[in-house]
C-alpha cells in the first residue's frame, strides 16, 4: 500500500435497520434496511479538496461520520496514510482523531452555549492533554482565532456563542477544528445555514486555510455551484452510492450521468431546466429502502430502459482521465 493518499475509502457500506414500533409488526414482515452508504470508494490526496454532493438523504453525512470514525462501517475498509484504520478502537484512534476534524452544518448546534469562546476553541487541546498553562491556552486561542479572521481575537475570548453572528460562529467552529493542526477537515455543509452574504467569506477562508495549513478537505454540499468553487474533484452521490466522480471541470462541463446532468442544468441554465424538466429527471425523492444491483437512479432516470436491467451494473466505468461514472449508457 503506498502512502500517496491521505485517505482511501474502499467499498464503504453502512445500512441502518428501520425501527417500527409494535411487537406484532416485526413478526409479520422482516425489518426494512436503509442503505445509507453503499460501496462508496474514493481516494483523497494530501492538499486536495473533494466535494461530496447529492440531495438530502443520499448518504453524504453518513459518509462523513464514517470518515471521522463516528460510525463504524458494516463492510469495506478505510485507510489513513496507508494504514488500515477500519477496526481501530478508542485508544488506537487517538492519533487519527487529532488529525481529522469536522465542521458541522449548524454552528448553533455545534458550539456548547454554556462555554465561552476561549474554552470552546481550546477544548480539543484539553481533551488531548496539550494544555500546560492558562497562558498557553490564551496564546493558542488568539493565534487560531486570528487565522480564521476574528479580529481582534482577544475581544472574542470571553464571549458566549449567543453573542456572535452566524458567520462568526462558523469561524469559531473552524478555529476549533484547526487548533490541533489536522491533516483533514470534513466540512459538512458549512455554509448552508448561513446568509448568502457571508457564505463567500467562509468559503474563501477555508480555501486560504487549506494553503496555509496544508489541509485536505472533504467538502459536503448539495449545491453544485459551491462545490465547483471549492473543490478539486467532485463525487456525486445518489442513494448511498457514488454515481459519478471526477475532476470538477469534467463534472461541470462534461457530465455523463443523467443525475449529474440534471444537477448541472439546474445550476447553469435554470430556465432551460424548468422548461424541459421531463427530459432531465423524473419527480421523486430518495427512497433508500430498496437497492438493486444495476442502478440506484432507476426510478428517476429518463434514460432508463429494459437494457439497463439487462446489462447494467452499478460498478464504475472510466469515461475520461480520472473520470468515472456508474451508468451503462455512458460506456465508451
Amino acid at each position: 500500500m503506498n502512502n500517496r493518499y491521505l485517505i482511501e475509502a474502499n467499498n464503504l457500506k453502512k445500512t441502518f435497520d428501520t425501527k417500527d414500533g409494535g411487537i406484532l409488526k416485526n413478526i409479520k414482515k422482516s425489518r426494512l434496511k436503509v442503505y445509507a452508504v453503499d460501496e462508496v470508494t474514493f481516494k483523497l490526496e494530501p492538499r486536495e479538496i473533494i466535494g461530496l454532493i447529492g440531495e438530502s438523504g443520499c448518504g453524504k453525512t453518513t459518509t462523513a461520520k464514517i470518515l471521522l470514525k463516528l460510525l463504524n462501517v458494516d463492510e469495506g475498509e478505510l485507510f489513513y496514510k496507508g494504514e488500515n484504520i477500519t477496526h481501530f478502537k478508542n485508544r488506537e484512534l487517538s492519533e487519527y482523531r487529532k488529525k481529522t476534524q469536522i465542521v458541522f452544518q449548524d454552528p448553533y448546534e455545534f458550539l456548547n452555549p454554556r462555554m465561552n469562546i476561549l474554552n470552546i476553541v481550546t477544548e480539543p487541546l484539553l481533551i488531548n492533554k496539550q494544555l500546560n498553562s492558562e497562558n498557553v491556552k490564551i496564546d493558542k486561542a488568539v493565534e487560531v482565532l486570528e487565522s480564521v479572521g476574528l479580529n481582534p481575537a482577544k475581544s472574542f475570548l470571553y464571549r458566549f456563542t449567543h453573542e456572535l453572528s452566524g458567520g462568526q460562529r462558523q469561524r469559531v467552529a473552524i478555529a476549533r477544528a484547526l487548533i490541533l493542526r489536522p491533516d483533514l477537515i470534513v466540512a459538512d455543509e458549512p455554509t448552508s445555514m448561513l446568509d448568502v452574504s457571508v457564505r463567500a467569506g467562509i468559503l474563501n477562508l477555508l480555501l486560504g486555510l487549506k494553503d496555509q495549513y496544508n489541509l485536505s478537505m472533504v467538502f459536503i454540499t448539495h449545491d453544485l455551484a459551491t462545490a465547483g468553487y471549492m473543490c478539486d474533484r467532485i463525487a456525486v452521490m445518489y442513494k448511498g452510492r457514488i454515481v459519478e466522480i471526477g475532476p470538477k471541470k469534467e463534472i461541470i462541463y462534461n457530465p455523463r450521468h443523467p443525475y449529474t446532468k440534471a444537477l448541472v442544468e439546474v445550476a447553469f441554465d435554470l430556465k432551460n431546466f424548468l422548461e424541459n424538466k421531463d427530459s432531465f429527471i423524473k419527480d421523486g425523492e430518495v427512497d433508500s429502502y430498496e437497492q438493486n444491483d444495476y442502478c440506484s437512479f432507476e426510478k428517476r432516470c429518463v434514460m432508463m430502459d429494459a437494457n439497463c436491467k439487462h446489462d447494467g451494473h452499478h460498478k464504475m466505468q472510466q469515461v475520461g482521465e480520472n473520470h468515472f461514472v456508474a451508468c451503462c449508457k455512458c460506456e465508451h
Binding site: 458541522f104 458550539l111 456548547n112
Partner: peptide, 25 residues
C-alpha cells in the same frame, strides 16, 4: 446535540463528555 458529536470527533472520552457537557445542564 452537535457539540457532543464534535467532542467525540476530537477524541473526548465518555467520562469527559458526561462531566463536562452533560452533567452541568
Amino acid at each position: 446535540k452537535g457539540y457532543i458529536e464534535a467532542v467525540k470527533a476530537t477524541g473526548g472520552k465518555s467520562s469527559y463528555i458526561i462531566t463536562k457537557h452533560i452533567l452541568p445542564p
